[in-house]
Write a protein that binds this DNA or RNA. Structure first.
Lengths: 225, 225
DNA sequence: ATGCCCTTTTCACAATCCGTTCACACAAAA
DNA sequence: TTTTGTGTGAACGGATTGTGAAAAGGGCAT
């Protein structure tokens, strides 16, 4: 399991697709790219994304069709791209459930601003320079690198995933079942004390900063700012 | 896969255009030339460049118009050329989003310095004399030639492509899937352990310098400076 | 077409790292 | 106090990756 924010980026112009995907990866996102509507729909069917960016004009299924299909399946922020002056698309876009609308040409900077706004709206977190800051902790998702008060803290994969999940849902009590479902996967069959063990390891790794992780007896755990 | 940097060079003086383009190509860049503003705008519309060099005074669209048009479309470093003493152009140039400014006549050496500075700023890489340097490694993309601490290292095509992909995305974790998509091609069907094998070969080839390639367990690989 | 060489892929095994479980200590609720 | 829930450390088992070699694939000259 990987807790970088996952973005699906569907755009038929290969050059634009590549350059934008690289830019997004540099900013800490995990990016899957699709070159047409059908590929995008297939990806969205098979995976869960934190954000989906769709070009409206694409061969095969157009962006709006893809968006409608996705919206039936699960709730995820969607950004539409369209050529300048296609105002009708904008209306339609919002109708099928788009959250943001960007006209091409756009600067990568603008795109990032919109993405961060959406992530913040959906998760309550702020990303700056590809780094996620929360108290004395700084996380660089692109490198799965965690620093506490400036010092790099090495972390096993599950510890990192667990940390990201807690932070993603900060100030919300998470039951062991919820944690197991999201961090371990729905299909996990083992005993739920595995969570306790990983919480302990995470606490050890975080040192002082572990005070943010509080035990809610008989319920689960919570990350408090 | 083409890992040379692409430059668009717009200049109406044919002699200067040809000699400069030749010089840039000798230094490992892929160069498209345009002889006026309209041609430059058309090229920029149809292709993606890693750098654009624009003469300000050109027939048709002048350099500033072209720059404005490009800036609306995508984010790319732009260098302006202008005749000596046209200070107003400098002001305007930065206004429309130029990154660098070079007065004619200029030495090819100076141009190269500025180009490298920009490429480095945008990509985090250093190119000098057509060679890309990263730590003790020196790569000549034009010849697909790699040196480690001055010693030529022979490398199979996939190893080279893999190296370039890692470097292009340095300090970013790349999953085996991402690597397979980019270096092998989307349509690759084999098992993803092929990546591991090539990583090993690349490590062997790089010797000491292989310490830059780190394994991120359960996720993929990363090139760290 | 054939054989050769280089590259790529696959496989089996080794080494390493990670996750899970257990037993017990301790703390909180009943 | 009893009961239930959580913290802790160590040990086991399993998953993931490193490694070498062998098989498969492709290009090129003969």
């Amino acid at each position: 399991m990987n807790n970088q924010y996952r973005i699906l980026f569907a755009e038929d112009d290969k050059a634009l697709r590549d350059i934008t995907a690289l830019f997004l990866r540099k900013n800490g996102f995990t990016v899957d790219t699709a070159e047409d509507g059908n590929e995008a729909a297939a990806y969205a069917e098979q995976n869960r994304y934190d954000l989906i960016i769709l070009d409206i004009m694409m061969p095969g299924k157009d962006g709006k069709d893809v968006c409608r299909a996705i919206r039936k399946k699960y709730d995820v922020p969607v950004i539409f791209l369209t050529a300048l002056g296609e105002e009708n698309d904008i209306i339609d876009g919002y109708e099928v459930g788009a959250d943001e609308y960007i006209t091409k040409p756009f600067s990568t900077k603008l795109l990032l601003v919109r993405i961060n706004a959406l992530i913040k709206r959906y998760h309550g977190l702020l990303i700056k320079d590809g780094k996620l800051r929360i108290g004395e902790i700084e996380i660089e998702p692109a490198r799965r690198c965690v620093k506490v008060s400036g010092k790099i803290v090495s972390m096993a994969p599950k510890e990192y995933d667990l940390l990201m999940y807690l932070i993603d849902n900060k100030n919300i009590i998470l039951s062991r079942d919820q944690i197991l479902d999201r961090v371990w996967g729905m299909d996990y069959e083992g005993c739920d004390r595995a969570v306790d063990t990983h919480i302990r390891k995470l606490r050890t790794a975080l040192g002082d900063a572990s005070r943010h992780i509080e035990t809610v007896i008989k319920v689960g755990y919570i990350w408090k700012d």
